[in-house]
Nucleic acid binder design. Structure first.
Lengths: 94, 94, 94, 94
DNA sequence: CGCTTAATATAGCCAC
DNA sequence: GTGGCTATATTAAGCG
């Protein structure tokens, strides 16, 4: 094995040839391109929240709504059931 | 917390008319559309990691490299921002 | 197991006995006690900033200094060393 | 940002004498000592959550309960403060 | 008080 | 598949 044994596989013949290095570089650039797009979209989302806030809506509440819609309804019901169960056990129940 | 929060602003005239409700719905759908895109890109990134792993590269290490390049880029941007600040302070700024 | 198997563990026999409820309550009280201590210390820190501000120092600047000192320089150097090999392979080496 | 901030007050005669520098250093060390304690307690809290999780409780749900109890306690304290205020206004206060 | 930045909670990923 | 860990999303604090 060419790997001196630091603990992780360092890839195919990185040190010896530039071929694998080029391939690795290509992978990294693809990833960085995608991450850039992802960040841009995250920025867009942030902008939308700013916009709705400017329209008088409460951003945290809207976040909760979005989250709740994303969660499958039955799964949410299950979690609420657990919460209720705990609260009842603690005498905090409604 | 499930409760969106008593006392929070519930938006402009949510209870009275359907107008604000429609506006809110539009905002939410915009957000959900963007989040969907974001998730799709995240999936693409995951695929790339799977691909490079199949080519013999160590995925966690590549993640670290990507992270470091990002940090380096951020630091460079910061230095440029500082430089610009200095130039403005010296009356050389745009 | 008494859990009918909805999908998630709902805790040890919360509904059946008060035993688990007592245990849960004990955990919660431990947490609340610790959070109280934490808040007290946060208050102390705030007081120190108030004090140094009263002595003529700029609080935000001092915060930055504290933050910068918190970042361990050697740790960063170590991480950079680990990945230097890869960066050299990418032609990014110094 | 790495730059502590151009334009900020750097404290009383930092450059001229070492006296203020020593005072500043003392403040910083006090803060760092307190932050260390705070981190230790945060770690303890984390441990408790790990422990209760190991006992079969659902950590996120317990977090929610702790939060809810905190809010309830805050509201109660607020109500008591208001009551006291009224009592003082009525000449019934201590 | 609104904006920006630090602390925290959650979620996804990787190793075991 | 479980548990630790890093990355991200959310929340709270600090500052002007």
């Amino acid at each position: 094995m060419t790997d001196p044994g630091i603990g992780h596989n360092q890839g195919p013949e990185v040190a010896e040839s530039g071929v694998a290095a080029d391939e690795l570089k290509a992978f990294i650039e693809r990833i960085e391109r995608l991450e850039e797009e992802k960040s841009a979209i995250a920025g867009d989302i942030k902008e939308v929240y700013g916009e709705l806030k400017g329209r008088g809506f409460d951003a945290p509440t809207v976040r909760k709504i979005v989250q709740m819609r994303k969660v499958a309804a039955d799964e949410r019901a299950e979690r609420e059931a657990i919460l209720e169960l705990y609260m009842q056990a603690l005498g905090m129940g409604a």
